[in-house]
Design a protein around this nucleic acid. Structure first.
Lengths: 275, 275
DNA sequence: CCCGTGCTACTGGTCCAACCAGTGCACTGG
DNA sequence: CCAGTGCACTGGTTGGACCAGTAGCACGGG
């Protein structure tokens, strides 16, 4: 049945856009280290003569790079377009679009954040240096001070705390993804929190939770730090998540129940086994 | 100290690029569901009159959208640019750039994959339906069959296995990120594996590991499934990672040592180095 | 009648020439 | 010496033009 052999198998060809080859060349020069952040690209008209393409084509390439956060063009600057240092902006934009277009719900986002944040704690507790620990402690102190300055200030200090922990985890992917997901989550629910009547109490509780995590990191107990942070995130966000979507979050909490099989969470193993 | 008040605080303004407003409008229409994948955008010249911008500007906007995987333009198609379904391509591109430009090492990638994959297993074991379990079992069967077809076929079956599990975890973010990270990892080391002399043995061992994970998922024991999968990934990739970078990976394995503090990780890391 | 061929009216891809507004820097006048 | 003013660039945007590719249709041969 599979008689589709033939010694002469040509590949399907597809036209290559000029602007795309320009983007590729610049990105390749960047990947090889030939171009570094902070350096400048030649001016558009100079690039036109170097690439041998029209200005419109060169500009299309620059727009793509610009929208990806690779370069930034500013009118009038004789030094030309600037090569930007990497930022999570690009990934953030993609993730944001994912959540909007594909309709990713808050439950999935929080679930993902629980995974990332607890992993960051697990790693940070074991890998941290003294300086990193001091940095984390400083952010907790800042949170304590920020409580009386309102939710806005507190939220910023909270962000700094989680960033410091992600930093100590020594994993850039965790740092970036955690940062992005946190950003998206906050953008979805910050308004609801702000108008919460008991935001003062919320902040104090949150501070206590963070202090608990910090204590475990100081002690080097990554497992406990991870467990606590997961639980904290669940407690913090559960109210905003529909009942029927909490199952996935609870599934993440189950993990720590092995040692203390006590108070269970809503029912038992959920899905009954087929067969 | 904070004497920077002033009742009239103006915001800094910055020029808005025309092409950017076009991109925003289209993305917004997409986010609001006004435009859906599969639909067509008006032709460039039609958009020119709708937006009131020149064709060059409209094209810059379309190039940005195209490079982000939102739309696709094809010359000659009278139906106009097509709105694409979401794909992880955009995020994959950003992550790939992150790894290249920022020089993210294999250790961080594998570490991240261990986190994502084990979390997927944890969730899948608890949330799976009978159909999803059957799908996973089918991929394992496919792996078994693919062993004799060489590494290439085996690798594809392996990908299908992890995708099926990510699917059962019900978390799109895990699916996408896991997919992307796996892709990048494979692109970094697949060549080394292919030319490994004992690839046959590697595949058989890998199959056994996957069967172990499957058994735990079938039994609904997410914790064990997660632990095994983490360990499997470590064993599989450890040889490609410099000694001094393995600490972060081992830190992830520590987690399960609480119950069974036994047999260590340093010694028996399985694969003996060829060479 | 049907099928294949060619035409045609579009599509996007690329280029060119021009104008405007913003910026950095050198030059000039105090 | 310093401050203010141009100048010579920069990127942003426009309009028009040409080319190549595609889909669909009308035509003509079987």
């Amino acid at each position: 049945m599979t008689g589709d052999e033939g010694p002469r198998a040509f590949h399907k060809v597809q036209p290559v856009r000029l602007y795309q080859t320009i983007v590729d060349q610049i990105e390749q020069a960047l990947a090889s280290g030939e171009l570094r952040p902070g350096q400048r690209l030649p001016s558009e008209r100079e690039l036109v003569s170097q690439f041998g393409a029209s200005r419109g084509t060169v500009r299309e390439a620059l727009r793509v790079l610009e929208s990806n956060g690779v370069v930034r063009s500013r009118p009038g600057d004789p030094r030309g377009p600037e090569i930007l240092p990497f930022s999570s902006q690009g990934i953030a934009k993609q993730l944001t679009r994912l959540t909007q277009v594909d309709g990713i719900g808050l439950a999935e986002l929080v679930s993902f954040r629980m995974i990332l944040d607890s992993s960051a704690n697990l790693l940070a507790a074991q890998l941290r240096t003294a300086e990193e620990l001091a940095a984390i402690e400083a952010t907790v102190a800042a949170m304590r001070d920020a409580i009386r300055d309102g939710y806005q200030a507190f939220s910023e200090a909270d962000v700094a705390f989680h960033d410091a922990i992600a930093m100590a985890s020594r994993n850039s992917l965790i740092q970036v993804c955690n940062h992005v997901v946190r950003e998206v989550v906050l953008s979805l629910i910050s308004d609801k929190i702000v108008q919460s009547p008991n935001s003062q109490a919320l902040m104090e509780r949150s501070l206590r939770h963070h202090e608990d995590v910090l204590a475990q990191i100081r002690a080097g107990d990554g497992i406990t730090a991870a467990r606590i942070s997961r639980r904290n995130l669940y407690d913090y966000y559960a109210d905003y998540i529909p009942e029927e979507e909490r199952r996935a979050l609870i599934a993440l909490l189950q993990e720590q129940e092995q040692a203390a099989p006590g108070p269970t969470l809503s029912g038992d193993t959920a899905i009954q086994d087929p067969r």
